[in-house]
Design a protein around this nucleic acid. Structure first.
Length: 428
RNA sequence: GCCGCCGUGGCUCAGCCCGGUAGAGCGGCUGGCUGUUAACCAGUCGGUCAAAGGUUCGAAUCCUUUCGGCGGCGCCA
């Protein structure tokens, strides 16, 4: 048996005129009287294989159907007529699993391929997106590690809300009522008192009935939290992370971007420092287009998009009105109406990250809870953090899938995750 | 929570406005084809038109309700 080769190696021209074997699945099949063209895919690419009627592989090749698994042995030839520039002259075909008629064909709707998600994940598109996703995760971890952050593992079952209770998924936990976490932030806040700089990459669950191309009910959240830091430290870290990830991907995922038709130049253009504007400045800039905006109104998606398109690259909006932010947001002592909160925005998507300074003063925190109708007694452990050695600290959370949508120019966030959960989709 | 659009063979769609025998392409199957690029040519199989109710001599088509899907707003990452 000839050595098993990955298809990408053949396409890179490393096996030309050599006798090799590949293993994979039939991607396309075209037949004529004396010649069969097989396109074989593996995890790394697609290669055209020819089977002549005179080849010992002919009989088996004839039986093959789309998505059958096989191993194939033959000699690699450079050939301009072949897609990819190389093909295998087949000498032996060994069918491993003969496929029934594959349901996904040329004509397919978005709806249909969502029903066939378990099979659609074999598509070139999903294969490539999942590889980029893995690279983004790796680059993210690498940056956190470089900056001396410790990765931690927060719980998914929680007993109290992080933010408003309306978007929590409730569940029966034996005979108790629990929730799925919407953010690991409060748990990271616990851990900074031990490990100082911490981060996690974990799912967050939101029961928002949002029917948009930017929402999942289960999404992966990149969250960091650290002590002895302020808003400037926070923004510097976030832009550093974003820049590191973009530059790494621009370097390591060139093939994937090319095949997906995604614009890699916008990643190369990401450099520190990012533009920063205050909420106040954002309102002033948006007023001409949206006169209804006044200080105190939340920025809508359309507003964010106008700003994002104007910058054409990632940027920060910070110092939001306290009234539209969560109870744990720290406020300026001399301006309690303004909260130390920052969003990172990107074109087309709007918000991909929210962060801020957390209120470290116990009494102010209790007051903020009461203002928002929360019971301080539900957050005893959170208040303990302010009782025992409280410290100024900051943190942020970034939506991994939103980041990928922006990076890869995806049409819909569901393609940024293998098994999307939306209000209507949770199968397989 | 509010609003809009869609549902017709396995898949993609036409037909619906203006009611009168359900159509095409792809896929499958059969045959043909000397290099194809999700090939091409010929033939063939395949549908109680999402469901229920109503109007009508007659409903895929008009009306009502329900179910399923997609998207927008709000909210969010």
């Amino acid at each position: 048996m000839a050595p098993i080769t990955k298809i990408s190696q053949i396409l890179d021209g490393k096996c030309t005129d050599q006798k090799i074997a590949v293993r994979g699945w039939v991607y396309r099949k075209r037949e004529s009287k004396e010649l069969i063209f097989l396109l074989i895919r593996d995890s790394t690419g697609v290669i055209q294989c020819t089977v002549k009627k005179t080849s010992p592989a002919w009989n088996e090749a004839q039986k093959l159907t789309i998505e059958s698994s096989l191993s194939l042995e033959g000699t690699v030839k450079e050939d301009k007529r072949a897609p990819g520039g190389y093909e295998i002259n087949s000498e032996l075909v060994n069918i491993i699993g003969l496929a029934e008629t594959f349901p996904i064909a040329k004509d397919k709707s978005e709806e249909f391929i969502r029903d066939m998600r378990h099979l659609w994940l074999r598509s070139r598109k999903m294969n490539l997106v999942m590889k980029v996703r893995a690279e983004v995760l790796e680059a993210t971890r690498k940056y956190f590690k470089q900056q001396n952050y410790t990765e931690v593992s927060p719980p998914m079952f929680i007993s109290a809300a992080v933010e408003g209770g309306s978007t929590l998924f409730g569940l029966k936990y034996f005979d108790q009522d629990l929730y799925l976490t919407q953010s690991s932030q409060l748990y990271l806040e616990i851990l900074i008192y031990s490990l100082e700089n911490v981060y996690c990459i974990a799912p967050s669950f939101r029961a928002e009935k949002s029917r948009t191309i930017r929402h999942l009910t289960e999404y992966w959240h990149i969250e960091g939290e650290w002590p002895f830091a302020d808003m400037d430290d926070l923004m510097k870290f976030e832009e550093g992370l974003m820049t590191h990830v973009c530059q790494t991907i621009a370097n390591t995922c060139q093939k994937e971007f090319k095949e997906l038709g995604a614009d890699i130049e916008k990643l190369k253009a990401v450099q520190t420092p990012f533009p920063r504007i205050t909420y106040q400045e954002a309102i002033e800039q948006l007023k001409p287009a949206n006169p209804a905006l006044t200080w105190g109104s939340d920025l809508g998606y359309e507003d964010e998009k106008v700003l994002a398109d104007k910058f054409g690259k990632p940027f920060f909006v910070y110092d939001y009105p306290t009234a539209i932010k969560a109870f744990y947001c720290k406020t300026y002592r001399e301006h309690p109406e303004i909260a130390m909160s920052v969003d990172m925005m990107v074109p087309r998507i709007g918000e991909i990250s929210t962060g801020g300074a957390r209120e470290e003063n116990k009494d102010i925190l209790i007051q903020r809870m009461r203002e928002q109708g929360l019971k301080p007694e539900d957050y005893e452990w959170y208040l303990d953090l302010r009782r025992y050695g409280t410290v100024p600290h900051v943190g942020f959370g970034m939506g991994l899938e939103r980041l990928l949508v922006w990076m890869l120019d995806l049409d819909n966030i569901i393609d940024a995750i293998p098994f999307p959960r939306t209000t209507r989709r949770f199968y397989p």
